[in-house]
Protein backbone atom coordinates (compact mmCIF):
# COMPACT_ATOMS: atom_id res chain seq x y z
CA UNK A 1 0.00 0.00 0.00
CA UNK A 2 2.83 2.41 0.77
CA UNK A 3 4.14 2.05 -2.77
CA UNK A 4 0.70 2.80 -4.19
CA UNK A 5 0.35 5.80 -1.89
CA UNK A 6 3.68 7.23 -3.01
CA UNK A 7 2.82 6.60 -6.68
CA UNK A 8 -0.56 8.28 -6.38
CA UNK A 9 0.94 11.23 -4.52
CA UNK A 10 3.66 11.66 -7.14
CA UNK A 11 1.25 11.41 -10.08
CA UNK A 12 -1.23 13.85 -8.55
CA UNK A 13 1.53 16.32 -7.65
CA UNK A 14 2.85 16.24 -11.21
CA UNK A 15 -0.66 16.68 -12.59
CA UNK A 16 -1.26 19.62 -10.26
CA UNK A 17 2.03 21.24 -11.26
CA UNK A 18 1.21 20.97 -14.99
CA UNK A 19 -2.23 22.41 -14.38
CA UNK A 20 -0.72 25.32 -12.43
CA UNK A 21 1.50 26.13 -15.41
CA UNK A 22 -1.61 26.37 -17.58
CA UNK A 23 -3.32 28.62 -15.02
CA UNK A 24 -0.31 30.97 -15.02
CA UNK A 25 0.09 30.96 -18.81
CA UNK A 26 -3.55 31.48 -19.68
CA UNK A 27 -3.89 33.00 -22.26
CA UNK A 28 -7.60 33.71 -21.79
CA UNK A 29 -9.76 33.71 -18.68
CA UNK A 30 -11.62 30.68 -20.01
CA UNK A 31 -8.37 28.69 -20.23
CA UNK A 32 -7.75 29.53 -16.62
CA UNK A 33 -11.24 28.46 -15.56
CA UNK A 34 -10.84 25.11 -17.29
CA UNK A 35 -7.45 24.61 -15.67
CA UNK A 36 -8.83 25.63 -12.28
CA UNK A 37 -11.57 23.07 -12.67
CA UNK A 38 -8.98 20.39 -13.36
CA UNK A 39 -6.96 21.53 -10.36
CA UNK A 40 -10.07 21.24 -8.23
CA UNK A 41 -10.71 17.71 -9.52
CA UNK A 42 -7.10 16.81 -8.73
CA UNK A 43 -7.44 18.28 -5.23
CA UNK A 44 -10.60 16.27 -4.70
CA UNK A 45 -8.81 13.12 -5.90
CA UNK A 46 -5.95 13.84 -3.49
CA UNK A 47 -8.32 14.27 -0.54
CA UNK A 48 -10.16 11.06 -1.46
CA UNK A 49 -6.85 9.20 -1.81
CA UNK A 50 -5.69 10.48 1.57
CA UNK A 51 -8.94 9.24 3.14
CA UNK A 52 -8.47 5.86 1.47
CA UNK A 53 -4.87 5.34 2.52
CA UNK A 54 -5.36 6.36 6.15
CA UNK A 55 -8.80 4.69 6.28
CA UNK A 56 -10.03 7.90 7.89
CA UNK A 57 -13.32 9.26 6.46
CA UNK A 58 -13.18 12.61 8.31
CA UNK A 59 -12.41 14.64 5.20
CA UNK A 60 -15.09 13.13 2.94
CA UNK A 61 -17.70 15.87 3.56
CA UNK A 62 -15.18 18.34 2.13
CA UNK A 63 -15.52 16.52 -1.19
CA UNK A 64 -19.28 17.01 -1.24
CA UNK A 65 -18.75 20.75 -0.94
CA UNK A 66 -15.97 20.74 -3.56
CA UNK A 67 -18.16 18.84 -6.05
CA UNK A 68 -20.81 21.56 -5.90
CA UNK A 69 -18.57 24.63 -5.52
CA UNK A 70 -16.41 23.93 -8.55
CA UNK A 71 -19.47 23.82 -10.75
CA UNK A 72 -20.92 27.04 -9.36
CA UNK A 73 -17.65 28.86 -9.93
CA UNK A 74 -17.22 27.85 -13.58
CA UNK A 75 -20.82 28.56 -14.49
CA UNK A 76 -20.73 31.97 -12.85
CA UNK A 77 -17.49 33.03 -14.53
CA UNK A 78 -18.43 31.80 -18.01
CA UNK A 79 -21.81 33.48 -17.72
CA UNK A 80 -20.03 36.69 -16.76
CA UNK A 81 -17.68 36.43 -19.73
CA UNK A 82 -20.44 35.96 -22.32
CA UNK A 83 -22.25 38.97 -20.99
CA UNK A 84 -19.18 41.15 -20.79
CA UNK A 85 -19.34 41.94 -24.52
CA UNK A 86 -22.36 43.98 -25.59
Amino acid sequence: MTVAAIAVAALLTAAGALTLIRIVRGPSTLDRIVATEVLLAITASAIAAEAAFTRDPTSLPVLVVLAILGFTGSVAVSRFITREKP
Partner: peptide, 19 residues
Protein backbone atom coordinates in the same frame (compact mmCIF):
# COMPACT_ATOMS: atom_id res chain seq x y z
CA UNK B 1 -4.59 0.35 -5.15
CA UNK B 2 -5.00 -0.38 -8.87
CA UNK B 3 -8.13 1.81 -9.04
CA UNK B 4 -6.41 4.69 -7.33
CA UNK B 5 -3.23 4.54 -9.37
CA UNK B 6 -5.33 4.38 -12.57
CA UNK B 7 -7.30 7.42 -11.40
CA UNK B 8 -4.08 9.30 -10.67
CA UNK B 9 -2.68 8.41 -14.11
CA UNK B 10 -5.83 9.83 -15.71
CA UNK B 11 -5.35 13.04 -13.70
CA UNK B 12 -1.76 13.27 -14.91
CA UNK B 13 -2.82 12.73 -18.52
CA UNK B 14 -5.32 15.55 -18.07
CA UNK B 15 -2.50 17.78 -16.82
CA UNK B 16 -0.36 16.88 -19.83
CA UNK B 17 -3.24 17.39 -22.24
CA UNK B 18 -4.06 20.73 -20.66
CA UNK B 19 -0.55 21.92 -21.37
Amino acid sequence: AVCMVAGAVLSLSAGVALL
